[in-house]
Amino acid sequence: MYSPEIVLEAVVNGLLTGAVYALVALGLTLVYGVLHIINFAHGALLTCAMFAVWGLATAFGIDPYLAIPPLVLVFFGMGYALQRFVIGPASHGDDNNMLLVTLGLSIAIENGLLAVFHSDTRGLEGDAAFQVVQLGPMLISRAKLIGFAGALLVAALLWLLLTTTDTGKAIRAVAREKLGARLVGIDVRHIYAVTFGLGCACLAVAACLLMPTYYVNPRVGNAFVLVAFTIVVLGGMGSVPGALLGGLFIGVVESMSGLFLGDSLGQLGIFVIFILVLLLRPTGMFGAKA
């Protein structure tokens, strides 16, 4: 029905989009793996990051890619402070309360953004969305290619951090054995905050990679987080490689179902997968058995 070139191009496009999905999912799965909560504020924080990229580009003419280093620092710091001084203290020592605090936070952020920016949809000036690169028979969006490379790079850096540094090992230790961690002198509250900060830093990168071809409004983050949540469940809650592979897979699923079912039904495939995973393999591809 479709020529192989078109299908191939859809697969590649799906992989490229999926990498950025994976980046959003990485932040979500990292926070889940360590704090054992779904961070409901993840979408709102992504929206914030996208507004920040838009603001820097519109007001100061700063290229979204150049905005990555400063925004990563700012969002890491913001995430650290949010967890350390707002979410942590507000949950009074009961981790289950953190979930509710993040939900409240997301409502506050979203409505704050609505109050300031109204519900208008905004995009960046320029023709970044139309620049393409020829790859064999395919024409691939340059911005998406950069997004793909950037997302994989961040995933690799995150993996290095988690496996080679003391802080990374402490993050993985706290994820599974909090008392043992405290007894070797790990400050669990600090590690929680670092983890939350890293999750937000992933969002900052994702926002910088998305904005050249995407738009922002005060609710835009939610769509991504719904997809990211599917990815986290598919990959296994808390699994970093699961989030990466799950992201790429979901990207392809979305692109394929968009091709075969029509653009407006592109996300249908994602949620069919979501339901199938929950039915058949609730621990996901890389999830630990409960």
């Binding site: 090992k169 993985r172 230790a173 599974r176 054995e177 008392l179 043992g180 007894l183 630990a288």
Partner: peptide, 11 residues
């Protein structure tokens, strides 16, 4: 060194 070891099983 705690009761029940409390080692990090995933590390």
């Amino acid at each position: 060194v705690p009761e029940g070891r409390k080692i990090f099983p995933n590390l």
